[in-house]
């Protein structure tokens, strides 16, 4: 018997809960079939979300999940060029034709899907992205050169959260695309995901007592993102997320972090997201997304 995990037709942070609901449903002992046949598009958040789910199943020693590829040639090619199938092939039993397309160095993929397991991976990610980020942020998004440095710093800190806190490996991808529905502008999106312990378990030993009955995924996210606390007693900790927030404030960007059953967002004026969502379908680990929009005269 298999249980079907539906991949949303348009798979981004908004439709992630639908995916998480499907992933959490059914008998976990049954083999999972990730059905992406109807997929029309996936953001980097969606792509690495699927890999995270498969990685969780692998770490739980479940039977290797099945994956049916998108019916659309264009979508398959896009996902192949974004580096998705390179790692999906290790985690899924893939059904359907996977294009032999190379992972693309074209402008839309600032960073293809990349695993993050150790400090060296963060060095590699930061080293690889700086020149391309400079070209894209200045050329397409109209950000000044200074923004590139902050962008690489934000990326570094986001990836380090996996190494420092997840207790397992994770994934990062950075794409640029046009945010038609919500903004009508080009954006650069950093997505980072892991299937590790999540914020609640990471902070439980140092923070749970302080929050009492309120303790849970939402309280843990609030403690980490708003109050800047860390599981480490070292007073210098917690500055990574603070640094990301500082960068996003300057460039009118958005930060959202989902962990377990909650999601917190630092919402810029151009978006109508809610600051905190609770009682979401459970998904393991944590998923972070940073969105930096093209600058307009209004942004300065």
């Amino acid at each position: 018997m298999t249980r079907v995990v539906e991949v949303p037709a348009s798979f981004d942070d908004k439709s992630f809960d639908q995916f998480a609901q499907s992933f959490a449903s059914g008998d976990p002992g049954q083999r999972a079939l990730f059905d992406a046949r109807g997929a029309q598009w996936a953001s980097p958040y969606g792509l690495i979300g699927m890999l995270t789910a498969a990685q969780v199943l692998q770490e739980q020693r479940r039977e290797r999940p099945l994956f049916t590829v998108p019916s659309s040639d264009d979508v398959r090619r896009y996902w192949a060029r974004a580096g998705f199938f390179r790692y999906a092939a290790e985690l899924f039993e893939i059904h359907g034709k996977v294009p032999r397309t190379k992972v693309d160095d074209d402008a839309d993929y600032l960073l293809p899907v990349t695993p993050v397991r150790a400090s060296e991976d963060v060095h590699a990610v930061v080293g690889a992205i700086q020149e391309r980020a400079a070209r894209m942020l200045a050329g397409e998004l109209g950000l000044e050169a200074k923004a590139t440095i902050g962008f690489a710093m934000a990326l570094s800190e986001a990836c380090q959260n996996i190494v420092e806190h997840a207790g397992t490996g994770g994934w990062v991808a950075v794409h640029a695309y046009t945010f038609r529905k919500r903004l009508g502008r080009r954006v650069v999106v950093i997505a980072v995901s892991d299937g590790g312990v999540g914020f609640s378990r990471s902070l439980e030993s140092t923070q749970a007592r302080r929050f009492g009955d309120r303790w849970g995924d939402a309280a843990a996210l609030e403690a980490a993102v708003i109050q800047g606390v860390s599981r480490f007693r070292d007073p210098g900790r917690g500055q990574g997320l603070a640094g990301i927030k500082r960068y996003l404030t300057r460039w009118n960007g958005k930060l959202s972090i989902r962990s377990g059953t909650a999601r917190i967002a630092i919402v810029p004026p151009w978006d109508d997201d809610v600051p905190m969502s609770e009682d979401l379908p459970f998904f393991p680990g944590s998923q972070l997304q940073v969105v930096i929009p093209a600058q307009t005269e209004i942004d300065g």
Binding site: H123, A124, V126, G127, A152, Q160, V163
Partner: peptide, 12 residues
């Protein structure tokens, strides 16, 4: 032992 000039990550 990394071929980069960037000072990133706590362990580094």
């Amino acid at each position: 032992q990394v071929p980069y000039r960037d000072l990133v990550t706590r362990s580094t």
